[in-house]
Write a protein that binds this DNA or RNA. Structure first.
Lengths: 347, 347
DNA sequence: ACGCAACATGTAACCGGTTACCATGATAAT
DNA sequence: ATTATCATGGTAACCGGTTACATGTTGCGT
């Protein structure tokens, strides 16, 4: 592979001139530039980005660290990020922590010297640990994680409010015995959604200890919950799954057991993955605009990299919208969970 | 951020020794190594991967260049790649050519110096052009693209055979007037699938010029086709869409027009995206194991990077399996399109 | 014709690691 | 006691670019 030295020699100029010609710096005469360009073409020279980023101290790459790559949730996030990154000529370096805390540290460490900034989604990590792993000098935006005391910019979904709104909607539709299928114990989204459910049940439904089944956000755990429901003879007239994936498994499980949705029992999910509207009956859910989660975070990171200060915009909360579809017996109309916030509108 | 020089100074040794201690090379005494490690911990030193890769001449990163990031097809591919890459401690650098030929060149060029190898999926590029863009010195595996004369390793799906088998199955189910919804004109997969359809119709069904509607692999174009079908009064008793995404749109469009599936018309797709089995009725399709496309390619690339020669394994053809589901009125049983090939078995 | 500014180009240091090669001191062999 | 041997650790070159600074060249004003 040809190097800049080769090009310079071929064009009969110094490396400095060659570099300047290639990068379009002003102080090069037209004929010199032409000679350099000819050499570039002839030798098929492509600048070595690794070497370049060493001196420039920027890599034009952002690291994206996700807990997993499975399912539409993550692919939508990546798509959202890429959309914005691509416009600014940024590349995406994917890091996967595969659920393990130890790997998270490794994934973050491996990014040093490769990226200009980081987008991290640490759904089940304690903030203190995260602070240990992160390099304070590396601009970082958190995905779907309010770091609280850490004072890191983040974009998150208002899970509490969303779950509250969905529970309220189910109660309004006449459900009395609503069962919640929770997400992973350590997962923050899952815990916030559960809190929203519990609070709504207490305040609006007047129910103190609503039934909660365990789950882990997987389709299989939704099916599992269906079996528990049917066998355990829980008197449920509605089930609110903490995410769509589980709702999908749940519906399949209920169908197997001969239960009709929404006839025997209503079902609701959370996220609005693309699959949701294609189910039959279509799935009622809280629409999160998952791709916006990614694109908003990427836009924030870009602004930080440009040296702007985010100020109030450093904490962006996306409010999910209630989408009432077939599984709650409703028409397919959409209603905002609450007036869109300024943050949401700017996204 | 601390550099190796800082660490060496702190530990009272030279940079060479520090480097050796950190990388576990033999010629360092235990006390010296301990001193270095203490300095590393104290200064929070993390080696700068950019600088390291410059001398080592390897980056532990592979570039992945895809035409788009939309839909489950691509997210499944990335997942498959990541699965294998992660095991070998490799990172993934995402490049997106966003459909444009010009951007493809840019995406590939930008990878120089950043990656050890390339995984490229160029569905609508001419082989000659591709050869121009690719760096012959950079190990490259093509995804879903038989480069023919280029002699590059690739892993592809037997689209022709798959489409042939699906058409045969539809005919066996009693369909007489089968309409095909084609993919993008320049897309190779799409063309091969169309050829398979046409040939099967001719050889088995004895039909010379079967009806073919245009499409572009998008859900919307499937819906569009549904409108054409209904308005144009085409006497179709089965529709074979070139991919699942279009089949989904098609089914929605047919439902809108009051047509029942599979009662009035059978529907089949291609790819077996996760969504397929969740539709109601569930979608009959050719199962491609999309993630394997990615993981197989990544495994091939790793072997090349290790210096092994692939030999016959450099061309891997995955044979899709016929999955008969609800939209063709069948039970949900799976039948192999044909005996699995050696290549398929080894994947 | 001379002095000086403005501009083109070259030299070399530097980014942060790795590593070939050499120097040192300790130990072993004679 | 003297020298050969070797493990350990230091010096400096190098990877492939960028860029501060030095140098050379041209053109303008007087």
């Amino acid at each position: 592979m040809a190097t800049l030295r080769d090009v310079a020699r071929e064009a009969g100029v110094s490396v400095a001139t060659a570099s300047r010609a290639i990068n379009g710096l002003g102080n090069v005469t037209a004929p010199t530039r032409a000679a350099v360009m000819a050499a570039v073409k002839k030798l098929n020279f492509v600048p070595h980005s690794g070497a370049r980023s060493l001196t420039r101290r920027k890599t034009d790459t952002v690291g994206v660290i996700l807990p997993d790559l499975f399912g539409e949730f993550f692919s939508e996030i990546i798509r959202g990020i890429d959309l914005v990154a691509h416009e600014s000529g940024m590349h995406l370096l994917l890091g996967n922590m595969h659920g393990s805390t130890h790997e998270t540290a490794a994934a973050i460490a491996a990014m040093r010297g490769r990226v200009d900034g980081l987008l991290v989604m640490p759904p089940d990590l304690k903030p203190e640990l995260l602070a240990d792993y992160l390099d304070p000098a590396l601009p970082t935006v958190l995905l779907n994680y309010d770091a609280g005391p850490l004072d890191l910019p983040f974009v998150a979904v208002d899970n509490y409010q969303g779950a509250y709104a969905m529970t309220e909607a189910l109660l309004a539709r006449g459900a009395r015995n609503i069962v919640h299928i929770a997400g992973p114990k350590h997962n923050r989204d899952a815990r916030d959604r559960q809190r929203g459910f519990v609070d709504a049940m207490a305040k609006i439904g007047g129910v103190r200890n609503p039934a909660i089944l365990p789950g882990d956000f997987s389709e299989e755990s939704g099916a599992q919950a269906a079996r528990l429901l049917v066998q355990g003879q829980l008197p449920a007239d509605a089930v609110f799954a903490a995410n769509d994936q589980m709702a999908v498994g749940l519906i399949a499980g209920l169908a197997e057991a001969g239960k009709s949705v929404p006839g025997d029992v209503m079902v609701a999910g959370f996220d609005d993955i693309p699959l949701a509207r294609h189910l039959n009956p279509s799935l009622s859910t809280m629409q999160v605009h998952i791709d916006r989660l990614g694109s908003t975070a990427m836009m924030m990171l870009l602004r930080i990299l440009r040296g702007e200060t985010l100020g109030a915009a450093s904490a962006t909360i996306l409010t999910p919208a209630l989408i009432a579809r077939g599984t709650t017996g409703g028409a397919a109309n959409r209603v905002a969970a609450q007036p869109a916030t300024a943050a949401d509108a700017s996204a």
